[in-house]
Design a protein around this nucleic acid. Sequence first.
DNA 1: GCGGCACCTTGATATGCATCAAGCTTGCAA
DNA 2: TTGCAAGCTTGATGCATATCAAGGTGCCGC
Lengths: 228, 228
Amino acid sequence: MDNRSVLTRELRHHYLFAALDAKQRTRLLGHIHTRPFAAGELLFNQGDAARAFFLLQSGAVKLYRISAEGQEKVMRLIRPGQSFAESVMFMNEPRYPVHGQGIEGGSLVSIECEAFLAILRESFDTCRAVMAQMTRRIQAHWDEIELLTLQNSRYRVIHYLLGLVPDGQRGRVNVILPTRKGLIAAQLAVAPETFSRVLRALTDEGLIEVQDEVVDVYDTEVLRLHIR
Amino acid sequence: MDNRSVLTRELRHHYLFAALDAKQRTRLLGHIHTRPFAAGELLFNQGDAARAFFLLQSGAVKLYRISAEGQEKVMRLIRPGQSFAESVMFMNEPRYPVHGQGIEGGSLVSIECEAFLAILRESFDTCRAVMAQMTRRIQAHWDEIELLTLQNSRYRVIHYLLGLVPDGQRGRVNVILPTRKGLIAAQLAVAPETFSRVLRALTDEGLIEVQDEVVDVYDTEVLRLHIR
DNA sequence: GCGGCACCTTGATATGCATCAAGCTTGCAA
DNA sequence: TTGCAAGCTTGATGCATATCAAGGTGCCGC
């Protein structure tokens, strides 16, 4: 398969696989499957038994939960190059803790847990990479919980916009919203209407300009100060 | 030191140390320090450089963050036998991601990160235990985020009370609130007044009875259904 | 025993955000 | 071209929860 060499190249650049030697990588290839998926396609349900975790090659995926009343909270948006559900590897009875659904069609790599655990056993560097990654995720969760409990919707939106600004850039920056506004609202745990209203308020205050999915931030530092 | 044998016994029962052999445990003892702390004593500040993580022997500790307006969110309450801040081990520039403060005086074991990392390098079982633990923490965070965004204060309080019921018990159960009500409220991200009012409402509805820190749950299953 | 403090409770009021409802735009299909 | 559905915006209303304020209780030090 020609597919293999492409896959190999991609894996090399991912933290989970970077520390593997050629032999390990080859061995792993036998336990990896690539498959396409469509926008709207359900990849797995919360509670489904899990035998694999994933690496997104292209497209976009949302991880989310649903409340009893049918309200949806987007827990995480996955973009190409990101892996997700690694944590099922370490569960006694592995089940996906969220729903996963494609929002833009693309291609997904699934890695069998057992196979990867075998690799982990022989590579402390990879173990360490996994632990470091989990630490980052835990950090992100602390931050999100703080954001949800200690900050209002205006703060959350501003924080989100500033989070989209590429590292190191400041001053006037154009940012592109990565998906439709309704999903971003769900991620920030606000109603779509509220998200819309906050953007409007920021526009009226002369801080930003919104043109569909393009947000023109007039000045990152000024915006940062306009959290009330 | 006699202290040592006590410590050794305690470590054996903790997931982080259970898989270690005698030699490793002995080696680690040289990099472990026990120290007392008082109620109200600040153990570390968010952002402090970190060289160690902790295991609580006795007393109680709260991990929390403070908003710009001085509002406090309790991220986690630590009870004897629990470890915390393990994740600083895997950071590039280790800093505590939260404040830590004693709420009841007690005794704290600090374990030097470097020393424990050396152990991890030679024990995959311990690696795996750490990863499993981090997975559980991540799970708990998903759950908490869901709770905060998808559920109202009444649900959160009921969920919290039911979480205090010992495993397997059902029907009429007495639960003991682990700390003062104000802190529990902060953990649930509600105002102390709201927490008080929810308990009152549940009492008025004939579901529970509250006597200081003792909550008499008349029927766990009935309470579970009374989430509105 | 008394004063003061910490914590909790209760009531009144304020407010941020969700919800409901309607209109607008865009894209796509018939 | 028309029609319809999806997504976004905007306005009106309602509700849950925070905030403010006051009083109650128990504890500790003096």
